[in-house]
Design a protein around this nucleic acid. Structure first.
Length: 887
DNA sequence: ATACATACC
DNA sequence: TACTGGTATGTAT
């Protein structure tokens, strides 16, 4: 507590601001010199001061962590060690080396495009962006330490000759479309990450490629190749080699042109009509893809080939620019690769995580593996799981589809804005822009968030969730304005001195207000609600809300999840000497209480008296607080019943999926609701991975057996039947839709413990399919659990159904589900599906597809910087008065 | 549910 | 002169 900031004085350089030379193109620079210039240029600025502050916060976090570490006993560590080893074993079992995942990334994309279109730039250090902020720099500029996310004026200090070119997103988008066309040839379900980056699953392509004639693997050089200012190196150096039609040259040659120099394996440039024949190996295929990209766009790409996304991403960086790297799909190769990998290279581990890990002596993934026991005592379960995966070289071996967007926002930075009228006016402008964007995607959301950044770079967000969804300017502004008003009043008589304002909408509901489906399913789901942090959510009986959390419950068998949670909690609690675990938490505090407590805490921590602001704030907060408090109270009342229901689930399920901590028994297995095989694990993450794969595969090639690695194989006849049903869907909705259905049926199973149990009782039970046409439910085989007579209880009406035939049961459930929704579902199928709706979502998110079906036909915007919302440079309307807004 | 922090491009 | 904008997710209350 009273540590003060003593040990965390902001003397040394700021890790936050120092050059990040971890990413490609910046090897062996004069770091110190560069950092010195960066610091000198920034010193004293408000930005710098704020960074200083934030750095100290991080330092305090680290101190706290170290303190915790110091209290860990040998015994605790030992126990933890056993635990993590068990987890590692389970994760190990989930390892899947059968897929070929490729991550492609254009080299210095924006900069490359600009250079291509303006040859003068070619040999100059240049960057795309503005004096305030750069998006990308070319490799020449990187030598000076100029890189993305650096303000232009600092870059100029580092490299006075730097040419800064303004961004031209339309152009980048156009190029992006071109390369995506190529991506689609190798994986129609590829997942774009941004305009210049994507994940592809090459597995299927490679399988087919083996039987392709050479002609299909032959690609011409650009007619007007080279020159044009874009040609870059490689083309010229293409030796007039033996091109001919001999596949032997490239046939399965991981050896030939082993990536190091990228497309150096160029052959076949016989005089005029140069072309090249590519082999059938992975590397050849990827090289071919990169070749085609280059021929088409005159821009180069780099790629990584690995058995999972996490590794592929790292690999694509390895031989950048214009190169590729393949990590062989063997456990040994993967483990070797991971050992020396700096943690910072891993996607998801950023500046702060790196610093915290470093403080524990962890800088490479091998350390990560060695320190898992310690980490398990210091980090959250989520982080721990991530670390563990990373240290084992694990990651997604399938590429999840893109989910529905979860929020939409617009924000703007400007010169200090202190006048109230202008602030409101600006706020309205933002709302207009946002409403316009919302309209484009036909979205409506219930939560409006206002974001403010003052001239000291302090960021504040204020949100309000409405009982209904909104979308229009007026609706959004009505909320945003009030939020802003509160902040203004809060600060008065000082003005808010803003440098940024933003408005966001989230908690989307289907545009056409067809909640009924959601309502019934969610209503049903409420009881099992559990979130990842272990706290039971408050349960305002608002029917449609927070799909993510609920689908969590949907997507995972609630019971087993609960079990798992308890397991983790129990061992952790013991080790830490904590009490209670996640289900018995403190009563929640009101907004006011929390705000107050927080301030006190801050005061204590910083020893900065704040009496003044205190009182003022309280009075203001209190007004909103009363509402919040009501909500909180009602949710607290409901929590008991939630727990009860959860416990019921547990008791139902225990026999099936006991976990080491839960039933005292050591794990058995879980039954996959897709393939119905027993998955030998109790680790939900492992189990989820399995389900993910099943889903992924069933949507891709429903008539092929899943998981070639598995010893248990699917009954192919059943598969076939399943496929026929799938055909129907495909006809009208394409693959996407099918996947949704798959999830859908999955959800129906998962949400009903009884049902689930009965399914488990007969692992041959095939997937119950929902027919896309009439919404009736059919079963592949009438269920024959005669011996047991499991009780089927309708998840909607809660009545016991006098049948053990799942077909009949499902039919009943369907009838129970809101008719209106079912109709809408029917209409839905005719909606065009966005073929790019692929994402990096996890299993939980897929459940969302179910709940969000209503909006799935929508086209979606790609991630930034892909398509920033149209920013109309609007002037501030000075005629607006505060009164106008305050009424 | 909110607020804030971290991460990615 | 000047340190982004859009989205998702984790952590804490």
């Amino acid at each position: 507590m009273e540590n003060e900031a003593a040990s965390t004085k902001g003397e040394g350089f700021l890790s936050r601001m120092a050059l990040n030379d971890n990413k490609a193109g910046m090897e062996g620079l004069n770091r110190d010199k560069i950092n010195k210039i960066i610091m000198e240029t920034s010193k004293g600025s408000r930005f710098y001061e704020n960074e200083l502050k934030r750095e100290q916060q991080v330092n305090q976090r680290i101190e706290k962590m170290m303190l915790q570490k110091a209290q860990i006993t040998e015994q605790q560590l030992k126990k933890a060690q056993a635990q993590v080893e068990r987890m590692a074993t389970e994760l190990e079992r989930s390892r899947d080396l059968s897929r070929v995942i490729v991550h492609v990334d254009m080299d210095a994309f924006y900069a490359a495009v600009e250079m291509r279109d303006c040859p003068e730039l070619k040999d100059k250090p240049m960057a795309v962006g503005s004096m305030s902020m750069l998006s990308t720099s070319n490799y020449h500029a990187r030598k000076y330490g100029v890189r993305a996310a650096m303000p232009g004026f600092i870059a100029k200090k580092l490299c006075p000759n730097l040419v800064i070119v303004p961004t031209n997103f339309d152009k980048y988008r156009a190029v992006s479309d071109e390369i995506r066309e190529i991506f689609a040839d190798y994986d129609p379900h590829f997942q774009p990450v941004s305009l210049d980056e994507a994940y592809l699953d090459f597995t299927d392509h490679l399988e087919q490629r083996q039987s392709w004639p050479e002609s299909s693997r032959t690609h011409r050089f650009r007619a007007s190749s080279t020159t044009t200012g874009g040609g870059q190196i490689e083309l010229q150096e293409a030796e007039p080699e033996v091109k001919d039609l001999s596949p032997v040259l490239f046939e399965d040659s991981p050896s030939s042109s082993p990536c190091l120099l990228g497309s150096d394996g160029v052959a076949a440039t016989a005089g005029g009509g140069a072309f090249e024949v590519f082999g059938t190996s992975v590397e050849e295929a990827v090289r071919e893809m990169r070749f085609r990209i280059e021929q088409k766009t005159m821009l180069t790409a780099s790629a990584g080939i690995a058995p999972n996304m996490m590794l592929a991403k790292v690999c694509s960086d390895k031989n950048k620019p214009n190169g590729q790297y393949r990590l062989p799909p063997t456990r040994e190769a993967v483990m070797d690769f991971v050992q020396n990998l700096p943690v910072r290279k891993v996607s998801g581990i950023g500046k702060v995580s790196e610093k915290m890990l470093n403080a524990l002596g962890i800088s490479s993934c091998s350390h990560l593996g060695q320190q898992m026991a310690l980490l398990s005592l210091l980090f959250s379960d989520t982080s721990l799981h991530h670390f563990m995966q990373v240290s084992l070289g694990l990651g997604s071996s399938y590429i999840p589809r893109h989910e529905e967007r979860k929020s939409m926002s617009t924000e703007r930075t400007f010169k200090e804005l202190s006048k109230v009228e202008e602030q409101f006016s600006l706020c309205r402008d933002l709302c207009e822009d946002l409403a316009e964007d919302m309209k484009k995607e036909d979205l409506k959301g219930k939560t409006v968030t206002l974001k403010l950044k003052n001239v000291n770079f302090e960021v504040k967000t204020r949100a309000l969730t409405l009982p209904h969804a909104v979308a229009t300017v007026d609706e959004i502004f009505a909320v945003a304005k009030d939020l802003l008003k509160v902040e203004i009043e809060n600060e008065s008589p000082q003005p808010l001195r803003l440098r940024l304002m933003g408005v966001r909408i989230s908690a989307f509901v289907s545009p056409d207000d067809k909640k009924p489906l959601q309502r019934s399913i969610i209503g049903f789901l409420q009881p099992g609600k559990t979130d990842s942090s272990g706290s039971v959510q408050g349960m305002h009986q608002k029917p449609e809300k927070d799909h993510h959390v609920q689908t969590w419950t949907l997507a995972r068998p609630p019971l087993t999840q609960k079990c798992q949670k308890q397991e983790e909690v129990s061992w952790r609690s013991k080790l830490r000497g904590l009490e209670g675990g996640q289900t018995s938490e403190e009563p929640q505090q009101s907004f006011f209480q929390r705000a107050h407590a927080k301030r006190l805490q801050l005061q204590a921590a910083n020893a900065i008296p704040q009496e003044e602001g205190h009182r003022e704030n309280d009075s203001v907060i209190e007004s909103i607080g009363s509402h919040a408090q009501n909500c909180v109270e009602s949710s607290a009342k409901n929590r008991k019943s939630i727990d009860l229901l959860e416990n019921d689930f547990v008791s139902c399920e225990e026999a099936q999926a006991s976990t080491s901590g839960c039933g005292g028994t050591v794990s058995e297995s879980l039954t996959c609701p897709v393939c119905f095989r027993q998955v030998e694990t109790t680790d939900l993450n492992v189990f989820n991975g399995h389900i993910d794969q099943c889903l992924s595969e069933s949507s891709r090639k429903p008539n092929q057996s899943t998981d070639p690695n598995s010893e248990l194989d699917l009954d192919s006849e059943n598969d076939h039947k399943e496929c026929q049903v799938a055909e129907k869907w495909r006809e009208e909705c394409e693959v996407e839709e099918e996947r949704v259905k798959n999830s859908e049926e999955l959800e129906l199973k998962r949400i009903d413990p009884q049902n689930q149990r009965s399914l488990k009782n007969d692992s041959h039970q095939k997937v119950v399919s929902i027919n896309g046409d009439d919404k009736t439910v059919t079963s592949q085989q009438p269920q024959s659990c005669n011996g047991r007579g499991p009780v089927l209880i309708c998840p909607v009406c809660q009545l016991t159904q006098d049948t053990d035939d799942l077909a009949i049961f499902n039919h009943h459930v369907d009838l129970c589900l809101n008719q209106e929704v079912l109709h809408e579902l029917g209409g839905q199928t005719s909606c065009p599906i966005n073929p790019l709706s692929v994402t990096n979502g996890k299993a939980i998110d897929r459940g969302q597809l179910l709940l969000r079906q209503g909006s799935k036909g929508k086209s979606k915007r790609q991630n930034s910087p892909s398509s920033p919302p149209s920013k109309r440079a609007k002037g501030i309307a000075p005629h607006n008065t505060i009164d106008k807004f305050f009424r």
